[in-house]
């Protein structure tokens, strides 16, 4: 399926898939932090690669990101992304450390673990909902320019297209963004061949054609 040509109906289905995954991720983080965590109503839209960079604040912006490659019933990449200010706020919430002086090894491992939990619980919910086995790779953390991190994550999609369906949910703590950054996201980037499998699993493959 040409990923740029999904119908509105199918985009809505993906939004629901995203709500289920992100909702479970929020619940997990909430019990870890003992705070109310919400994942903002997900955005699901086809975006040209260069627009995705702008969406996360520009290709040169420093972000922290946990990456997981998914194989199994569907394949694709997942990314948990935080701007540096959001990450500092998260580290403060988790450890009480001020986190003003760069990122310590402990601070980074907090983000690594938060990303791990968020992605893991997202995928658990997704796997239950779709009835697929999903096998995630070992989560890997990087702190670098958004362009460098995202372009790598888009390389499989790049084989077919210059546009990716970004399935995005934004993180809110006690109803607000973590910091002025407001730049914490969980991205699901299915490989192009996986969309049909999602729709087939949900029995809506033939619905809402263009």
């Amino acid at each position: 399926m040409n990923s740029a040509a999904l119908s509105d109906f199918h985009l809505d289905v993906l939004k629901e898939v995203s709500n289920i995954g992100a909702g479970n991720a929020a619940t997990s983080l909430s019990s870890l932090l003992g705070r109310t965590v919400d994942m903002k109503v997900s955005k699901v839209l086809p975006m040209p690669f260069n627009e995705i960079m702008e969406y996360v604040g520009g290709a040169e912006r420093m972000i922290l990101s946990v990456f997981v490659r998914i194989e199994g019933g569907i394949s694709g990449n997942m990314l948990f992304i935080m701007g540096t200010e959001d990450a500092r706020a998260m580290i403060r919430h988790m450890t009480g450390a001020s986190g003003e002086e760069g990122f310590t090894e402990m601070g980074l491992s907090v983000i690594h673990e938060v990303g791990n939990i968020m992605i893991g619980s997202y995928l658990t919910a997704l796997s239950d909902f779709l009835g697929f086995e999903l096998t995630p790779s070992v989560p890997s953390l990087a702190m670098d320019m958004a362009g460098a991190i995202l372009a790598f994550s888009l390389s499989e999609i790049g084989r077919t297209s210059d546009t990716a369906i970004v399935i995005d949910a934004g993180l809110l703590l006690d109803g607000a963004a973590l910091s002025e950054d407001g730049a914490s996201h969980i991205f699901l980037l299915p490989d192009p061949g996986s969309f049909d499998r999602i729709f087939q699993a949900l029995g809506v493959a033939g619905h809402g054609g263009n």
Partner: peptide, 21 residues
């Protein structure tokens, strides 16, 4: 941008941001 190219003449410069892989 990603998967884009271009050519410039003096005195302009040409740049791309955030190369990873």
């Amino acid at each position: 941008g990603i998967a884009e190219g271009g050519v410039v003449g003096h005195p302009d410069t040409i740049s791309t941001l955030g190369l990873g892989s």
